[in-house]
């Protein structure tokens, strides 16, 4: 966990020039391991797309019509 957090802080600093603002920020950055786990669990559900699916079209198609 310490290594993950250290690497995350380094990456953020390198790519964005943003330093960890405080301890809650570090704790929440360390919690990104759970975000990764959640995405790992979804692997296999995303198929090759010729063009991105439209959320607006989905809203329209599933709307209340009565």
């Amino acid at each position: 966990m310490d290594q993950f957090l250290a690497e995350t802080e380094t990456t953020i600093a390198r790519w964005h020039g943003v330093a960890a603002p405080n301890e809650p920020g570090r704790r929440m950055a360390a919690d990104l391991v759970n975000t990764i786990a959640a995405f790992e669990a979804l692997r296999g559900t995303l198929k090759f797309e010729d063009e991105p699916a439209s959320f607006e079209a989905a809203l329209h198609d599933t709307r209340e019509t009565a």
Binding site: T11, I12, V18, P21, G25, L32
Partner: peptide
């Protein structure tokens, strides 16, 4: 966040910080 992060409450800058990763 780069230049004035201390002008945010901790819970706010802390929540935004992981977004960069």
């Amino acid at each position: 966040m780069r230049h004035r992060s201390q002008d945010y409450a901790q819970h706010l800058s802390g929540r935004m910080y992981p977004g960069y990763a």
